[in-house]
Design a binder for these strands. Structure first.
Ligand SMILES: [Zn+2]
Ligand SMILES: [Zn+2]
Ligand SMILES: [Zn+2]
Ligand SMILES: [Zn+2]
Lengths: 148, 148
DNA sequence: ATCTTAATGCGACAGTGTCGCATTAAGATC
DNA sequence: GATCTTAATGCGACACTGTCGCATTAAGAT
């Protein structure tokens, strides 16, 4: 289960409104898709789902909206080891970063939260004098199911 | 300086020979380019450089060779936050994994080695019962130069 | 020198993501 | 509610990345 359901749907809208971003039917549909997704979606999948809510939506609008959400730090972009093509995957950003593990055999995606990861980010900010905006840790390997 | 110069050039060739992989002029050129690169190169850049050594090389050969090296764990593939287009970047894998920091303002790429990162990977292997093949930690943020 | 088979070049292709431009509609102002 | 400004959209064209099938070439074993 990739997503903890601790966030109120509609939060994206509120956050964008706060920042004076115009809300449209198209954006509402896209935000809705991303907020309620139960797995990681690529741009094409977001488009197809959003079209069910708002059939006129164009591909470029999806890309522009994903860009907007990325710039505002509301979603994260992932590779998930490109197990299936070259698309990137998106997920809404929660309070806490998580690590993505992709099984190179069965393709299963596992998520993992770790305090050590938080410490590592702190170490980087201190040692490298960096201000971190996005931290993306992706692992490729072999899951326990596939090793038995 | 992205790469520690601790590796003998020609190591790729030796490793591939060990595994019974056929060596060609084209591969030699590509391996040479990657082994001697002083920064992270994308597939197009690898192609252009390899053509200087072996003008006949085709784009698909580069992709096929990069795929080969990836499968054999000799190179790592990076996004570097896609600061410039959607290409992926490649670098030869050294003894020790390193973290990539990409400054979202100036585009500078910084590399960082951390024991904490090694511990985190161990924790993941234990807690998630995972056998890690690739671990890619990429940070986007603001470097010290850009904050002053 | 011969032979097997892996690797290559070529061409065609699909997919991803971008952009300029004319049109539409959000939401502020009155 | 009508008007206005400007951001956002749809459309079309595009560039780029990466893939594949197939005929040809050449690696390296015999
Ligand atoms: Zn996730
Ligand atoms: Zn990527
Ligand atoms: Zn698996
Ligand atoms: Zn590096």
């Amino acid at each position: 289960m990739p997503f903890a359901n601790t966030e109120i749907p509609g939060k994206f809208q509120a956050l964008l409104a706060e920042r004076g971003i115009r809300m449209t039917e198209q954006r509402r549909a896209i935000l809705n898709v991303i907020e309620t997704a139960k797995r990681h979606l690529d741009a094409g999948q977001v488009l197809r789902r959003a079209r069910k809510l708002e059939p006129s939506i164009d591909r470029s609008t999806v890309y522009r909206t994903l860009g907007l959400l990325k710039r505002h730090g509301l979603i994260d972009e992932l590779d998930l080891m490109h197990l299936d093509g070259e698309a990137h995957y998106y997920e809404r950003k929660l309070n806490r970063d998580h690590i993505h593990l992709a099984c190179l055999r069965c393709g299963k995606i596992t998520e993992f939260v770790s305090d050590l990861f938080e410490s590592l980010k702190e170490q980087i900010e201190n040692d490298c004098q960096y201000q971190i905006a996005v931290a993306r840790l992706e692992i490729g390997g072999c899951c326990s199911n596939c090793r038995t």
